[in-house]
């Protein structure tokens, strides 16, 4: 066994890469749930984003346009969910599951002729001098741009939810939609905007997978990442900063166990693979053991249908 072969710098870099897709999808879902809507279609929106981003990046040669298209694609498919659940008042759980199935199938159809195509390379931050500092350079100043953007998005969501009037209104819709409605806020409109944001972020996360983490298109390539993102929102107890912690922890466990194995450590792989889910269950148990805590964090109207006349 030789752990000296594990370089902590490259370990941290690859854990950030592994964590970014679920980080983006989770921060989107957090906003959706904060507005009182449970959208289980994250996996479907991610894979649609993955293929939309891939197609546009390949056709235009620009990964940036690809990421934009992924956001548009994710938002577009989430709009189906929005119309069904907000106007037609369908069951959110069932509609979300249907969205996942639809997304997986539709993405396979769209991507039929894109397997084996190479996407354009996405750039890394490269600041002269700063990026060349040993350890700190590769650790802080030379990731790909989307990693910085994902952290900025987290900060922006935190600021929006806790420091702005708009965020307060959105949370009001999630905590008590009747009261929000009585105060004259347009609950349905707020929720639709939140759902679209969630779709765009899931799409962005999916495109990060197909353009940066794996750089290729393969059917079903999200392979359950959307479900981890959903678990992550609960793990983070609906707090934006904890999404970073959770995503890097989840991504970190995966990357660390692979590296430990490569270094020859004899570790129980199967148990480590299920660790993220176990941790989520433990967090759920801890949260629900203290009633006050749970009710403080989970939006009170999560998953409940709002109808103005009722």
């Amino acid at each position: 066994m030789d752990f000296s072969t594990i370089s902590s710098v490259s370990l941290i870099t690859s854990l950030m890469v592994a964590a970014t897709p679920i980080l983006l999808a989770a921060i989107g879902e957090l906003v959706v749930e904060k507005s009182g809507v449970l959208n289980l279609g994250v996996e479907g929106m991610m894979i649609i984003g993955a293929i939309c981003g891939f197609i546009v990046a390949v056709e235009t040669g620009s990964p940036w346009l690809g990421f934009l298209a992924a956001m548009a694609g994710g938002a577009a498919i989430s709009f189906i969910f929005a119309v069904l659940t907000q106007y037609m008042l369908t069951n959110q759980v069932a509609t979300g599951l249907a969205l996942t199935l639809f997304g997986l199938g539709f993405a396979a159809l769209l991507g039929h002729s894109y397997a084996g195509v190479k996407p354009p390379k996405f750039g890394h931050l490269d600041i002269p001098i700063l990026s060349d500092i040993p350890v700190i350079g590769p650790l802080i100043f030379s990731h790909d741009y989307m990693i910085y953007i994902s952290l900025i998005i987290i900060a922006a969501v935190w600021y929006f939810l806790t420091r702005t009037r708009g965020g307060l209104v959105l949370r009001a819709a999630g905590e008590n939609h009747d009261a929000a409605h009585a105060l004259g806020y347009k609950v349905i409109r707020i929720r639709i905007m939140a759902i679209l944001f969630g779709g765009a972020m899931a799409g962005l996360g999916g495109a990060y997978l197909s353009l940066v983490r794996v750089p290729q298109w393969t059917e079903g390539m999200t392979a359950g990442a959307g479900w981890i993102a959903l678990a992550l929102v609960v793990f983070a107890s609906w707090k934006p900063w904890r999404i970073i912690l959770g995503a890097y922890l989840f991504g970190g466990i995966t990357v660390l166990q692979l590296n430990l194995q490569a270094a020859g450590a004899n570790i129980p792989v199967a148990y480590l693979s299920m660790a993220p889910y176990l941790v989520t269950i433990i967090v759920l148990v801890i949260m629900s053991s203290d009633k006050k805590r749970a009710s403080l964090n989970a939006p009170a109207c999560l998953g409940r249908i709002f109808h103005a006349s009722s």
């Binding site: 690859s14 592994a18 983490r213 999200t222 392979a223 990357v255 692979l258 490569a262 020859g264 693979s273």
Partner: peptide
């Protein structure tokens, strides 16, 4: 030979991470 078990047949993200881990460690 450095061997990494991923406990899946198909998960492109995890397969890519495994390849990266192996390459980082000299493969």
């Amino acid at each position: 030979m450095k061997i990494v078990w991923v406990f899946t047949w198909f998960d492109p993200g995890k397969e890519a991470d495994a390849a990266t881990a192996l390459i980082d460690q000299g493969a």
